[in-house]
Design a protein around this nucleic acid. Structure first.
Lengths: 342, 342
DNA sequence: TTGTATGCGTTATCAA
DNA sequence: TTGATAACGCATACAA
């Protein structure tokens, strides 16, 4: 026995009225008498009738669902951001389909095709670290599929963007370390071609510059997988630690980098903040429980998700293509704790 | 300009063949000549044709999507479990729609209605802590909507279940504390009516009993929101700590309870494990980075998700209702670290 | 080997 | 005020 939801035909048969009358009655059409409406509505409630969304989608050529492409659900930033998306989408009657790239370009491509062919009405996307070519996105966008980029921004696409003030976050983080008299501050970044990595690098550079410290390329290392793979992080830090002029502090430019650095220091018995000052991007809600407690740059992930979803739905529901595009930039929340200073 | 995917009619017009010929050619029907097939396939690839899944759903009365109802995405156990679901679902060509209850019965109800009316082919559900009455689930199940229960099991529903050996996890956890000579072990549990809470309570009780320790009801406290709300946890532990015979160790029976207890002890400057031994359920992948490192009972969330998704898809795709139902019980993984012993 | 007609559930247009 | 019909895109039974 397969699940069969109630349909118009059922009501039609039961009440001896035509299907179109039922449809109009339920849609509160002015052409239908109050008496009929009442009768229809009552019976509909009784058998728990709901319009079949698949049929409505086919007819309306819209599915009332939006696709989300992110790197990883099991990441505090993304899961909080999804909560934000979820909260507005469900309020507005949209379905959310979440897909993960696990930072793979290949998976991003197939997820995007999957979503496009699933007739989502629009897409929220934060590109994978591996993605260097955005043609697949731009192509679909030009064909009329609404997109909103968030977090990791796609260059060359004319649409709304929800981003984070990476420059300021990195600047203030680096500055915090400088204030606490660290002298040789290294940076560990995500894949270097990502917009967010470049912006964070600039913030880091500028803070050093403003403090009169010469920027040293060898103090910067990148992890293509954004810190997901411990060995990659280990290799990068090992290199830094074997420099003739070792760093005395570290600025980590992603969530997973931050936690994996802590793991590294634990393994190597490197004392934070005495031997190595640390401040990094993180949305983990237990960063305060680590010893030492970790100073972090927190991104307002929930609000970013809300905002991105709102913009996307606005895009989807607008009759005409918008003339100009918003670029919402969210400010960092600095949570200064023990790891960044003595 | 709205996004319009290629359809059969486009190919039909371009090649001067009927729609049904195109359809059959693409479905590799024996009735179509190789020459035609080739021509059709080539053109289809060229314009990147993909069958419109909405039309297919309407016709086939199946949407190739499954619904997932969980408490919270931003929870390590659930996000890992979703990864498991995701990995099999996408392999089998199923769409995953995730909804969160935030532990509210009301939201569970509306999510379930939403999913059912969205024509999902089946549902994976872990009920909210608030849910004490399962009629909404049983009702839909009886009407033929396939369900698989996981983690928090629904009683009175005849279907596959994917669960965790809560008894053993709790038993071994309590036992670990006993081995380390803690004498007064308290338990902090999730909502008391949940199956998992009862099972964990039994494991805890039995371990005490086997050690010849009298079970004391006042040493057990429940948090209706599963530890989500700090103040609720605080209140519960405060009560325990003001008992005449205070506990010297604590077994926490959920992820969020474990982290919030650590927060409590930090705030109150209660030293773990000296003043209070601690072991708890947790799937956080940085439990080893806390100081002291936290001993945990880990649930194989990813595998549970995989398993649940496989069972659900099997249910969906089987012609006949299964004669008997599987009850997959996953064993605990005990990660003994510093918090549970001196 | 290919084309025509039908139905999936809904709503809008036209007719009565 | 209500009913019949067409259309959304696809797959299939039936015709040719």
């Amino acid at each position: 026995m397969k699940y069969e939801a109630a349909k118009l035909k059922d009501i039609s048969k039961a009440l001896g009225l035509s299907i179109s009358t039922i449809s109009r009655a339920l849609n509160d059409s002015y052409e239908i008498s109050e008496k009929t409406k009442k009768k229809v509505r009552e019976y509909a409630r009784e058998i728990n009738y709901r319009p079949n969304p698949v049929a409505v989608s086919l007819r309306d050529k819209r599915s009332r669902s939006i696709g989300v492409i992110i790197a990883e659900i099991a990441n505090s930033f993304f899961s909080q951001m999804i909560n934000g998306v979820d909260s507005v989408a469900h309020n507005r009657g949209y379905n959310v389909i979440i897909t993960q790239t696990h930072e793979s370009y290949h998976r991003e491509l197939s997820n995007l095709n999957f979503l496009a062919s699933s007739s989502v009405d629009g897409c929220l996307i934060s590109v994978s670290t591996e993605t260097e070519n955005f043609d697949h996105i731009i192509h679909l966008h030009e064909k009329g599929l609404p997109f909103v980029c968030f977090d990791r921004i796609v260059e060359g696409i004319k649409t709304h963007k929800v981003s984070f003030d990476n420059f300021r976050g990195a600047y203030e983080a680096t500055n915090e370390l400088l204030k606490n008299r660290y002298k040789r501050i290294a940076m560990l970044g995500n894949a270097s071609h990502l917009s967010i990595t470049q912006e964070r690098l600039e913030g880091y550079k500028n803070a050093l510059e403003d403090a009169g410290i010469l920027f040293d390329q060898s103090m910067v290392r990148y992890c293509l997988h954004g810190g997901m793979i411990y060995d990659e992080v280990k290799k990068a830090v090992d290199e830094l630690m074997h420099l003739r002029k070792k760093p005395d502090a570290l600025f980590t430019a992603s969530d997973k980098l931050t936690t994996n650095i802590i793991r590294y220091c634990n393994n190597r018995k490197i004392r934070i903040p005495e031997k190595l000052g640390l401040i990094g991007f993180s949305n983990l809600d237990i960063a305060d429980l680590l010893t030492p407690s970790i100073s972090v740059i927190r991104q307002p992930a929930f609000e970013m998700g809300r905002s991105a979803a709102e913009l996307l739905i606005k895009l989807i529901e607008s009759k005409h293509p918008p003339v100009d595009f918003e670029n919402k930039v969210f400010p960092p929340e600095m949570l200064i704790r023990q790891s960044s200073g003595l």
